[in-house]
Design a protein around this nucleic acid. Structure first.
Length: 418
DNA sequence: TCTGGGGTCCTAGGACCC
DNA sequence: TCTGGGGTCCTAGGACCC
């Protein structure tokens, strides 16, 4: 059996831990630049606010129902996520961290346990220690565990932990579940499925495997098998390193000169390279992209990207900044209002396993410099020591106007009790 | 006039996830 | 006026090889 443990309305729940006045009030957490609603309390969901709804479109509703809106506070959510993981580790040594608020858990070798009781204890400990509400779904495959979790959230009678094991239970659960709700079936596929008369999860489960694979793909075939209780999406407790590292941001204001774009790109490269070195990898190519505001139909649109290959794989920030700025100069066009810029590091491999170029001079050995920078920044805070190319401009910094304090990760912002 | 067959690797783009 | 960011996997098609 596989369990899926998922924190309810994660970002909102984190905010409520440190601000009890938010309990029983409708709360929304916004995306970067305070653009859309990315987390909603149950009260807000009931009002019909959809996931990722643009904030300006729901402003009326926010005012009418006195909804509390907050900017994203990733320092807080990341730290709370870590605390959840630490508790889960006490309950199983087979845990796959699937996302910031979700884990798949297996209990192989613990067959003597009453799995429901075990998961109830887990849930209660997370609640008691952290004040975060979680639900657990248990089933023979990941996809079914997701379904179980869905019902654990929905039905009070489950007491937040629900196991789907017997054919009868599974059938009942799938019967009324629209295909769009299945993990792995997105908007596109669900429309296609509806067109051919498949609207419920049960219908999909019982569809002909071969013809569905032909019509869709191997991904759909696996989903069907998973719905039949045949686990075929790998359980990966030890995920490999990232294969690409992406850093992108929309700007707080429009940008039309190349200079602030260069700063933004240098800033993104810096962040990406820190991640790259943390996982002890090197990358050999970098993609730079820029674009105007896609939703603004009134002004001229332009977007472009370029990929540059480094002569040798590296994890040195300055190698990538040099390449990225060269790329930016090639794709930049005057006369546009830019809204977003970003970079991707590609062709990532482990440090040291790549054969150097026979015809290149040996790589410069100033990795120590990066090490020193990382150490200083880890100790004194991000950006304490940085490349001059990042500049000191404010123009492209994102908006984040209503952010709660970093309660758990900054001494200056820790809650004080008087 | 008539021009093979079997393979690998890479990339861009699509679909999906939270 | 105002619409996020960071990932994974799969597939088709191109380039190339012998």
């Amino acid at each position: 059996m596989i369990a899926l443990c998922d924190v309810n309305n994660f970002y909102v729940s984190c905010e409520r831990v440190f601000d009890p006045s938010l309990w029983h009030r409708p709360v929304i957490v916004l995306s970067n630049n305070d653009g859309c609603a990315v987390a909603r309390s149950n009260e807000v969901k009931k009002l019909g606010v959809k996931m990722a709804a643009p904030f300006y479109q729901i402003k009326g509703l926010v005012k009418k129902h006195n909804i509390v809106t907050l900017s994203s506070n990733y320092a807080l959510y990341g730290d709370m996520s870590q605390r959840v993981d630490n508790i889960i580790a006490q309950y199983s040594d087979q845990v796959e961290n699937y996302s910031i608020d979700e884990c798949f858990i297996r209990f192989n070798g613990h067959e003597h346990l009453d799995i429901i009781e075990h998961c109830q204890n887990l849930r209660q400990q997370i609640w008691q220690w952290l004040g975060l509400p979680v639900c657990v779904g248990i089933a023979p495959s990941k996809t079914l565990a997701k379904v179980a979790n869905h019902y654990a959230k929905k039905h009070k009678s489950s007491n937040s932990v629900l196991k789907l094991a017997s054919e009868y239970q599974i059938k009942r659960a799938l019967e009324h579940l629209p295909v769009r709700e299945i993990w792995g079936v997105g908007g596109r596929s669900s429309r296609h499925l509806n067109d051919i008369g498949i609207t419920t999860a049960l219908q999909l489960r019982d569809a002909d495997l071969k013809s569905m694979r032909k019509r869709f793909s191997v991904v759909m075939e696996r989903t069907i098998l998973e719905l039949r209780g045949i686990s075929c999406i790998e359980f990966d407790a030890d995920p490999e390193k990232k294969k690409q590292i992406i850093c992108t941001r929309s700007f707080g204001e429009r940008v039309n000169h190349i200079h602030p774009l260069k700063e933004a790109i240098a800033y993104h490269v810096t962040r990406a390279c820190v991640t790259l070195r943390e996982q002890e990898s090197v990358a050999q190519s970098i993609t730079v992209s820029i674009r105007t505001a896609i939703y603004n139909n009134n002004s001229k649109q332009y977007s472009n990207s370029i990929t540059l290959k480094l002569p040798q794989a590296s994890s040195h920030t300055s190698h990538f900044i040099t390449a990225a700025i060269k790329g930016l100069e090639r794709i930049f066009k005057k006369g546009f209002n830019y809204k977003k810029a970003g970079i991707i590091l590609n062709h990532i491999s482990d440090t040291g396993i790549l054969q150097p170029d026979l015809f290149m001079p040996p790589p410069e050995c100033d990795d120590d410099l990066m090490q020193v920078m990382d150490n200083i920044n880890a100790r004194f805070g991000k950006g304490t020591l940085r490349s001059g190319q990042e500049g000191f401009g404010e123009q492209w910094i994102m908006k984040s106007e209503i952010k709660s304090p970093a309660y758990t990760s900054k001494f200056s912002e820790v809650t004080s009790v008087v």
